[in-house]
Design a protein around this nucleic acid. Sequence first.
RNA 1: GCUCCGGUAGUAUAGUCCGGUUAAGUAUGACGGCCUCUCGAGCCGCCGACCCGGGUUCGAAUCCCGGCCGGAGCACCA
Length: 528
Amino acid sequence: MAEVIREVNAIPVEEQRKIIERNWPETLVKEKVEEEKRLPKLPNVESYERVVTRFSPNPDCAIHLGSARAIILCHEYARMYKGSFILRFEDTDPRLKRSALPFYDSIREDLAWLGCKPDEEFIQSDRIPIYYEHAEKLLKDGNAYVCTCNGEEFKKKLLAQQPCPCRNLPPKEHLERWQKMLDGTFKEGEAVVRVKTDLSHPNPAVRDWPALRIIDPKTHPHPRVGRKYRVWPLYNLACGVDDHLMGISHIIRGKEHLTNQVRQEFMYKHFGWRYPEAIHYGRMKIVGAFLSKSKIVAGMREGLFKGWDDPRLATFAALRRRGIQPEAIKRMIIDVGPKAQDVTLSWDNLYAYNRKIIDPTANRYFFVHEPMRLVVRGLEQGFVARLPLHPDHPEKGFRQIEVKPKENEVSFHVSRGDLKLFKKDNVVRLMELFNIKIEQAGRKGVEAVYHSHTYEDAKKLAAPLVHWLPEGFGVPCTVVMPDASEAKGIVEEGCKKLRINDVVQFERFGFVRIDAVDKGIVAYYAHR
RNA sequence: GCUCCGGUAGUAUAGUCCGGUUAAGUAUGACGGCCUCUCGAGCCGCCGACCCGGGUUCGAAUCCCGGCCGGAGCACCA
């Protein structure tokens, strides 16, 4: 073998190529398949009856782009394998991460908007008896115990790989203690159910983890079930039990849950269950966006944000309001995939996906930002501008703007931002109208004289193009920018006919979503 | 500190499992140009990466070891 290789290597590469071309040309054909990126296969699909995935948020906050990975991946995989996608509300902490009623609905709404409607929905606060049953079974079998040690002492023992005094008590004793948890003999903080794992496990976080604790229902009622329960399951018990009971085949979640898998596997062994396939993707950040729930909540509390859909936020509600299309988010997430690597996306990236979707359909309009007066003299006649609603799709129609001079003179609104183009003696073209020669320009306004009519004339002079509106034509418009600042200006009359949620392009300004059309127009800026 | 998980251009991704048709494809971005009565879209060009050091091998982004860097977890949170 080595000899053959040596022999081949002795031949120059060009010569090698020729030999191959002569004898095995088919091996040189490079299939050029450029298709949309697809998701990689899910592991071990064949050993499950059907693929079942779940998205399991705590309804304690509006969900945001950070959840997109979980939602879209879970939903997409369920569709790919004709399986099912479950929405499960994990609302078992009425104390620290207390859920609130409005979020159950807003999450459902967001999922529907994203096109990821669940096939089934569960709410953990409806399932407390199920968790109790399983806790009792664990207790009875000696696989869990009720620990009454105080936190400090327990931790010391744990770190020393020592059992606490409770651990080796007989199951009977623990069942009695369990009753005392339920009936109120034990108060909040006095007892906790722990699942036995391995005290010598290298990761102390895995050793005998807590499964249920007491929360005083008087001081911490649950928003849905009120004061019905005083013992609440912790994440690993509730989630672990549910994943098995709901037949989840593939768990897709962030890698912060990696050790939870290790913890839960001990419980699965106690029950004799098989742990589902688990995929842990990396953290996703967007430069400059608050993608942490705590920061969003803090900002809301301090009144920093106007609402859950404040344009500075990356909540789905905010993105929706800005005219970001769900399909753009979906495309982006699928391109990123389910890898364990952390990713830092940029807004530009999302915008590029979005632009591809909205550009072909968004109609064009003139929005004059920070209007400034432009007076044009020397007009011998009236003009009518015919502006295509979409330059690439003339079949969509036109809008017409009439310009009627009075005493050979017309006043326009132009954007203050274009002042840099209005320099004395420069020729500028008012788009689709005519060309003007600047006579004077300053902060107070611009004065110009009619120069010529055709676009070709402007082209010859390399005149810059600006958009415009005749004075007295148009309606006030406010564009809410991504930093929540407001860009004020005037848009064409025709925009009054737009409907809320329409996504249009304000030419030379950017894509916006129409947010309100009564008393002036309000739009939210998407991106350039 | 302990326990895990990762490191391909500015960003993201393909290739990594099963080493060689590829000194690395794609998208976005930057830059330059063309086109267009938008600073949008389209077209062309161009810029730009295998974390580092050893080892195995005829050959390593791909396998092994060490280091470095980044992230996550270490709650009676989810």
